[in-house]
Computed example of a mutant assay.
Amino acid sequence: MNKSISFLTLAIGSSSAFANVAPTTQAQVAAQGNLQLTISGYEFPRLKPILNGQVDIEGVDLDYVKMGIGEMNNDVLNGEQTLDITEIGLHPYMLAYANEDFRDYTLLPIFPLRVFRHKSIFINKESGIEKPEDLKGKTIGTPGYSSTSLTWIRGMLLDEYDITPQDVNWIASDVDSSKELTGAVSAQEAMMPNGVVIRTGTPGKDESELLVTGEVDALFHAAEPKAYVQRHESVGRLFEDSRTAEQTYYAKTGIFPIMHAVAIKTELLEQHPWLAEAVFDAYVEAKDIAYAQMNKLGWAADMMPWYVQELEATRTLMGDNFFTYGLDEKNTKTLETLFRYSHEQGLSDYQLKIEDTFHKSALELVEQK
C-alpha cells in the first residue's frame, strides 16, 4: 500500500453528493483509485502514524489538516464541514445529535482522548474546601459548562458524593486561559440548562483569574488553569492525590472516561459501508505502534523518571490494552454513563443510546485482543 499522504481533497460537502448512488465495495474502490479524504486530529502518539502516513486507511489517501478540538467541533457541528474524518468532542456531538437533529456526521467507536477528571477540579485554598462535600453552597467557575469534561465531573460528583448541579453556584468566564490549546468553545459546550443558574464572571477575566481573586471558590476545567501551571500559592487541586482517587474510582466503576471520539461524514459511510472497519483498523494499528514504542523506548523518549513503574502499575490495574477502542462491555458502560449524565443534567433532550450515535456499520467493531 502507498504510505505517502496525498494532498488532494475530495469535494464531498454537498448533502446530495451521494444521492441515489449504490454503495461501493472495497474492491470497486481499489479498482477506481483510492478515496481522497480530509482528516483532522491531535498529533497524539496513538494517532500520529495515521497523520504522518506511516499507517494507511485501506482504500483512502489523506490530507491532514491541523486543528484544535474547538475548531474541529465548530467545523463539523456549526461550520463548513470541510473535514471527512475527524476527532471530535464526544458530548458536543451528543448535544447536537439529541437537541439539533444533527445527522451530517456519525461516530465510530474510536476514542483518541480519555482522561480521568478528578484531577480537573481546582480550588482556591482559602475557600474552606477540603473535601468534595464542601463544594455544596460554593461558587464554581468554568469556561464551558456543557463540555465533555464538565459533564463527566458533575456526573461523578453526583454518583460518588451526592452533589447535584443545583447544590452549587455557577459562574462562566468569558475568557479561557487554555484557548491556545483547545481553540474556541463551541456553541454545544456553552449550553445552559433549565434549572441551573449560571452567571457570567467579570468581563475580561479568564477562569484562572476568577479563581485567584476568589470570585469563584473552585474551578472545573479540562486543562490546567494558568494559575495552577504557574504554581500560584492560593490554587490547588481538590483531590491532592488525584492519582489514587482516580485509580480507586476505576477499580470501583470500571469507567475510564471518554472525552473525544472520531466522527465521519454519514454520506461517506452510506456510500462506502466498508469504510468504518477500514478506519477502525487503521486507528487500532496506529495505537499498537504507540504501545510498542512505550514498551521498547518509552522510558527513554519520555522525561518522566518513573515512566516504567507508572506503565507497569497502569497495566496491573487496567490491563495491557488500557486505552481500548470499540464497543466492548466496558466502553459501552462508559458511553451509557455519559449518556445518562447528559440527560440527568438537563443538557440532552433525551437519553441517547449506542445505536443512536454510532453508525450501524460500526456497532460490532471491537478490538481483536
Rank of each mutant, 00 (worst) to 15 (best):
M94V: 10
S178W: 03
K333Y: 10
F256Y: 12
H272I: 00
Y350T: 09
T164D: 15
W152N: 04
T332W: 03
S208G: 04
H232G: 00
N52L: 03
T316N: 08
H343Y: 15
R315P: 02
N34K: 12
V262A: 07
D302I: 07
L211K: 05
V366A: 09
S342V: 03
A251G: 11
F122T: 05
G204I: 04
L51E: 02
A286L: 02
G254N: 03
Q309S: 12
N295C: 08
I354H: 04
S4I: 11
E310H: 12
S342P: 08
S173M: 06
D176E: 10
L352D: 03
L150C: 11
F111V: 09
T253L: 07
D162Y: 01
Y42H: 12
Q309A: 10
K252M: 07
E329N: 08
T106R: 04
A263C: 04
L10Y: 11
N52P: 10
D104S: 11
G155D: 02
P49E: 03
S342L: 04
H221L: 12
S242H: 14
S40G: 08
G326L: 01
S234T: 14
L365Y: 01
E246S: 08
A187K: 14
H343K: 14
S4V: 13
L62Y: 06
V29A: 04
L37V: 00
L327C: 07
L338Q: 14
L268T: 09
A313S: 14
M318F: 00
L8E: 09
G298E: 04
I50W: 05
P165R: 00
V115K: 15
K369E: 15
F239R: 07
E43R: 13
T213S: 13
K136N: 00
I50M: 10
D63P: 00
S149M: 07
F122C: 05
H91M: 12
T266E: 07
N74S: 12
G68D: 14
S149K: 05
I12Y: 03
G236Y: 02
K360F: 08
K353W: 04
I289P: 08
L158N: 13
I264C: 11
Q309C: 01
E364Q: 15
E240W: 06
T106Y: 02
N2F: 09
G346H: 01
S4P: 07
K119D: 09
I110N: 03
L95W: 01
E100D: 15
A278C: 09
N194T: 09
A292N: 08
Y105W: 01
D328R: 01
R315K: 15
T324R: 15
Q345Y: 09
E133V: 05
A292Q: 14
F339V: 00
D101N: 15
Y250P: 08
A184D: 15
T139D: 04
P273V: 00
Y307N: 11
T332F: 02
A30I: 02
A300R: 10
T334C: 13
L47N: 15
L113N: 12
L297I: 13
E87H: 07
A218K: 05
Y250N: 05
D206I: 01
P143H: 10
A245I: 04
A11K: 14
I57S: 07
V168A: 02
F256R: 08
Y93H: 13
F44Y: 15
K66L: 10
E130L: 12
L8S: 11
I123W: 00
P225T: 01
I198P: 10
M318Y: 02
N34T: 01
K119A: 14
D320I: 07
L311Y: 11
T182D: 06
